[in-house]
Computed example of a mutant assay.
Amino acid sequence: MSLAHALLTSLLEQPSSGYDLARRFDKSIGHFWQATHQQIYRELGRMEKAGWIQSGPDPEAGRTRKRTYAVLPAGRDELMRWAAEAAPLTELRDEFLVRLRADAVVGPLGLLPELERRRALHADKLRAYRAIEARDFAPEAEPTRRRRIHHLILKAGIQYEQGWIGWYDEALHTLSED
C-alpha cells in the first residue's frame, strides 16, 4: 500500500485541507498506516502533479494560503485499480523476537523488563481502541455498510493487540520459570 492510496481514501471520505487531512489521518488510518505530516504534504504535491487530486483556496481560510484538496476522476480510478490488486501478506519482522532467540541460545539476557514494557504498550493501545469502539460504535447506532466496515477495521486492531498481550503473558511466564 502506498501513502497515496490511504490519502485518496481519506479525501474521498471528505475533501480537506492538508492540515485537516493530516489530523484526521492521525485519528483514523494512522492507527494502521503511519505517516508524518511532512510526508502527507509531499505526497499531496505528487498526487496533484499526477492529476489524481486538485487543490484550491479554502473558502474559509481568510488571508491564509490554506488549500482544500479533492479527488479527481483519475484519482478515483487509481484507487479502484489499486484496490483490485491482490494485497501481499505482511510478514512479521520484529527485532525483539531475534533478541528472544538470542536469549534462548546464550542464556538469560534480562529481557523481562522489556517484555513487560512492550506488553504495557499493547495494553495501552487496546484501551485506546476500546475507547474508540465505545465512543463511535454504540450498539444503537444505525449499522450502515460504511459503519460496519469501519468497525470491522477497528476490530482487527483490537484482536491484534489482544493476540500480542496473550503472547507477552505467555513469554513472561516462560522467562520467569528459569
Rank of each mutant, 00 (worst) to 15 (best):
A120F: 08
R99E: 15
H173D: 15
R127F: 06
D26I: 04
G75N: 01
T68L: 10
D169G: 02
R127C: 10
L175W: 04
L115N: 02
L79K: 02
P88D: 05
I153F: 13
A138M: 04
L175R: 06
W167F: 12
G107V: 03
Q14W: 06
I149S: 09
P59I: 12
L115M: 11
L3K: 02
I29C: 06
R99G: 08
Y19H: 08
I29S: 03
P139R: 07
R63P: 03
K27G: 04
D26V: 05
Q14K: 15
S16M: 11
L3M: 03
M47E: 03
H31A: 06
W52C: 03
W82Y: 01
E91D: 15
W82L: 02
G166N: 09
L100P: 02
Y168F: 03
T144R: 10
H5D: 08
R99K: 15
D77A: 13
R145M: 12
H37R: 15
R99Q: 12
R93N: 14
M47D: 00
Q38R: 14
E116H: 14
R24L: 08
K125L: 15
T9C: 07
A50F: 10
L154A: 13
F25K: 01
R63L: 14
L79P: 00
R99S: 14
L7N: 00
L97Y: 04
L72K: 05
A35F: 09
L89I: 09
H122F: 10
R76T: 08
E116G: 09
R148Q: 14
R118I: 00
F96W: 00
V106Q: 02
R135M: 06
T174M: 09
A120M: 11
M47Q: 04
K125A: 15
A131R: 05
R145P: 09
A134N: 07
D58S: 09
S17G: 05
L7V: 01
F96T: 02
A120K: 09
R81D: 00
E161L: 12
E95A: 14
P108D: 15
A70L: 15
R117C: 06
R24Q: 13
K49L: 11
L72E: 04
A6Q: 03
E142Y: 11
S10L: 12
E48H: 13
G18I: 01
R93P: 04
E85Y: 14
A86D: 09
S17W: 00
L8M: 11
P139C: 09
D94P: 00
M1D: 06
L3R: 00
E140V: 12
S10H: 10
R118Q: 05
W167V: 13
R93M: 07
D178V: 13
A86C: 09
E140T: 12
P139H: 08
L11H: 01
V106Y: 03
Q54S: 13
R117S: 06
L3D: 00
P88E: 04
E177L: 13
